[in-house]
Structures are given as structure tokens and as C-alpha cells.
Design a protein around this nucleic acid. Sequence first.
RNA 1: CGGGGUGUGGCGCAGCCUGGCAGCGCGCCUGCUUUGGGAGCAGGAUGUCGGGAGUUCGAAUCUCCCCACCCCGACCA
Length: 569
Amino acid sequence: MRSSKFFFATLKEAPAEAEVASHRLMLRAGLIRRLGAGLYTWMPLGLRVVRKIEAIVREEMNRAGALEVLMPCVIPAELWVESGRWDAFGPQMLKIRDRHQRDFLFGPTHEEVVTDIARREVRSYRQLPLHLYQIQTKFRDEIRPRFGVMRAREFVMKDGYSFHADYADLEREYRAMYDTYARIFTRLGLRFRAVAADPGAIGGTGSHEFHVLAESGEDAIAWCPDSDYAANVELAEALAPAAPRPAPGAPLAQVPTPGRETCADVAALLGVPIERTVKSIALVAGGRFALLLVRGDHTLNETKVAKVPGLAPFRFATEEEIARHTGAPPGYLGPVGLGEALVVADRTVAAMADFVCGANKEGFHLTGVNWGRDLPEPAIVADIRNVVDGDPSPDGRGRLRIERGIEVGHIFQLRTKYSEAMQATFLDEHGVARPIEMGCYGIGITRIVAAAIEQNHDERGIVFPRAIAPFEACIVPIGYARNPAVREAADRLYRDLAAAGVDVLLEDREERAGVLFADMDLIGIPHRLVVSERGLAAGTVEYKARRDASGQPVPAASAVAFLRERLAT
RNA sequence: CGGGGUGUGGCGCAGCCUGGCAGCGCGCCUGCUUUGGGAGCAGGAUGUCGGGAGUUCGAAUCUCCCCACCCCGACCA
């Protein structure tokens, strides 16, 4: 491609709306333009990146034996009524109506449609297994779209669905997809981690997420360097402390702590480590007022809370409810002397002695609090906190580390959730009708662009991994328009590289060198060759990888071979 | 949805408090010079100041209503 024939839309300054690095750079580099909240046009440069990602995903899905289909974006409501999700999926779903006032939705995911295909077409176990996938635009009416295409309302997703005669075969395919996803993200050139996950609203049993590792990631993931344990923090189990609860060693005392409403403040005032304090969180759970206790330096894990028997559904208590049940404002709550409130202690808290907590009296805390002596044993002891760096790994080997990631893939074992709801059955070898076992596998294609940039950028712009760069390499001639020798050499190099199968961009715009360099750095072209009068006199061109600090001369005659070798590594 | 904020030329912003010629930087167009890291000089174009209503001799500026967008909290690839 010649840049004079292409459409660049680079910006010196990013529009004010963009906060995160990837969003700013995508706008600045002219990959995308915003049309409305969570709605983006993919400009020619950005679409090249999307297409490259799609091609790799398609290749690997096909290699794994999945078959590509294309389902409608607009789905009749009946199918979703049948599965029970017309109401259950909620306001995230864009409902639309046609001229006959019939209800439709713009598909946020396609379990219903694909299950409908399966129940119509699959009759015998001989037709199984079957794996259908598509790469298609989805719409989810996010409450708050943000970070550009990272959390857009309209986005492109690869969604695949597999059908099996029995669970063993589903497990086989699930493992195969796990491996396929690992291949895909490796080929894309991304640093990623696969973690055990919560199936969430899609439903089913087993589930893994694939995260691109990035400091700015929205998800926290826990993994163990000494074992293969890795899980989303939502799911990662915090084990009970190994040591038994120490015997009480201090008397119960009430101390004034005016204005100290956080555990950190109280610990600082009293001169005790924050690990001796207990934080109380008030909920209304299962229709009852409940006080949840976690150690002062820990945080509550709402996903885990929702799974504790008797607590779901729950919501945080209002200040009025808190005052009514405890007699104190938030900041001074504690489990001592609470009549009928349900006390739920995290495992760590249940093993603490001589701890500090609120006194249920404004401006006061209690010290030297002990279970059994100063208050009854907690009604429920459960794992309700997020794991922290250094916690023991749940598999008993080593200690956990916490990293941040961006979820770009998710695989689920749906089992028979949809096939039963929609009567998708097949006849087994005994002639017995059985529900089809299903798996489901998603990849956020457009999100990958943002995630890749989030993981790979510097102060000058994007540093695309080679596999997804809009162009693999660029030729920057110095003085293309005014120097015939440079022009001829650059044109020849361009033809030779293109003939060698390199996806190369020739920067033949009539701009000063600085502008061309800045643009090439901004849009993240991985390899650069500079053709100049100076170099030609010495028989060389200058090579520089996007991450290199400076360039190096390469004999002009062997530039093609040199670059091909660079591209191969 | 709740809380906070912003809408002024393509982008980034000032002007608003205290009403009185709509401005700055970048970008864009023309010419000359320059030419290996976002050039210099000269000339030029581009605005229903988000929309509507009101107050006023006069509104970007004050009042009210509406719209859009952004940021912080609960959902997800």
C-alpha cells in the first residue's frame, strides 16, 4: 500500500473524551472514530487490524474442526421467551419492534439461535459432535460504555457452540478449545493467562477466561507460580488460616475513636497493625439484616457472598437500616451485642483473637474482642473475601500472586441448560431421546485490538505485535518527491518486499521526515526501513524495529532478505 | 439508574463569575523558503457558541426546559 493512496486520520492531540491509553491511541492513530456512546466506526487502518485478528481466529477454529456459520443479528423474541432469557437477560438487551409490532432483539449472544438450529437439524448421535461458530457484530446495551472499544455497546465477537452426545465428549472439546484459544492468543503475540472463572449469566458449569495481562485491566486474576493454579479473583478461594485461633490475651475495652471511620484510621490511632482490625459490612440478605465481617485490610467479594446459602439475594443496607439495627452510623459497626442480626464471619476473621471492631456507638471502637467470650461464635463462617497477594494457593502449593488482566476470551461448559429448556434432543444408539450436551466459546475480537494496545504501547504510540499490525513494515523515503534516486530505490524496495509477500506500506506522502516518522511510530508499524540519499551513497538502507532505540544500516541489496528474516522471528 | 462534570471552527482549549466586535494553539487552503524526528514567513477559509424558550436596548455569558457526551459506582467478550 502506498500511503498517498491510503486514508490516514492521525491526530496530534487526543479528543478529551478518551481516558485510557488504548482509547487515546486508537483515536490518535485514526483506527476508530466515535459515532455515539459505545458506538465506533472502524476506519481503514483499524479495520486492517480487526481483519488480521479475525483471520487468525478463523484459521484456528477451522483447524480445530469447527464450522463457520452466520446467524442473524436480529432475533425473534419467541426464542428468548422460550429459554427464559427474554426477561432474565434484562436491560442489557436491545429490544426492537418491527412494523407489525412484533418483538425482536439485537443478539447479545446466540445460544438460543444455535440451539434452535441443533434441535431442528440434529436427530441422531451419528451427527454429533458438531461445533458451529460465527464472527459477528453483537450489541449489549451496557449501562456505561467506556474505554472506547474495550467496553463498547456494539462489538465484534467470535462465538462458537459445540454439541455432544455425552459429557465426556463435551469435556474433550472443552479441552481442545482451551488449547485452541491458547494457540490463538499466542499467535496474536499477546501475553495472556487462562484462569478458572465464574460462569455468570451465560450459565453452565465449568468455565475459563483468557486474559490479556495489562496493568490497566479491569479484572484481577490470582495465579500461583509454584503450581498451575490460576483463577479470576471473583472465584479464587481464600483458605482458612492454617493456625488455630489463639486464646484470648487481652480484656475487652471500649476506646474513643472520634472521626476514625476506616480500619486504617482506627489502626493508626490505636497503634495496632491493620491486620488486628475487623471491618463490618451491613447487608439485607434473604430478607434479614446481616453483618459481614472481613479483616480490616481485606475486601468483600460479592460474588462469593451471593453463593453463601441463605444470603442470596442480598443488597447493601441503607444508612437508615444500619442505624435502626446497630444504633450507630457506618464506620462504627461491630458484631458485639447485636441482637437478631445475622453475623457472617470470613474464615480469617473467625480465626482471630483480641481484635478491634466498631462498638456500635458513634465515635467508639472495641479492642480485645474475642469470639466465644465477648460475643457468640459467628452464625456463619464462610469464604467471603478477595484473595490478596501472598495468600496460600488453594491447591496447597505455594502462594498466590495477583495480576490485572483484560478478559478477551471465555469458554463455558453449558451442559444441557439450553438444550433442555428448548428441547434440543437426539436419539442415542439405543434409540433413547437425550438432551444434547453443549459448550460455548467466545472471543472479543474488537476488544483484542484495545487489549493489545493497552499491553503494547509507549510514549510515541502503539507498538503492534507483528501478527495484528495494520502493516508489517514500512518504507520511509527521505525526499521521495524531490530526489529521483531515493524515489527509484524506495519504489524498487517496495516492489521487492510486496513480491516477497510482506505486507508493506510505502510512505510516499509529501511530508517532512519528522511527520512520517511520528505517524509510523504512532500507528505502531513493527518494522521500518529508511531510504535516504545518505544511505544510498553508502549502499545501505536503515532498519529499525519499533521498539529499538536507534536504527542500523543494512546493505540495500540484502534488505529484503534481512527484513524477511526479522519477520520470521 | 444514582452522583459529579462538560458542550465555543476538524482537534485541544480561553472567553462565562462581572452581559457590549467570538478569540488562541494545532490542523486545513495558497505562495515562497526549508527538507533525517510533528518546519519558517506571508496571505486565506472555516462558528446557527449543543437545542429551545425566557430576561434584556443587547446573551457564548443570566434564568428555565430539553438533548448529547464524559468521569465515579452495580453488568460482561
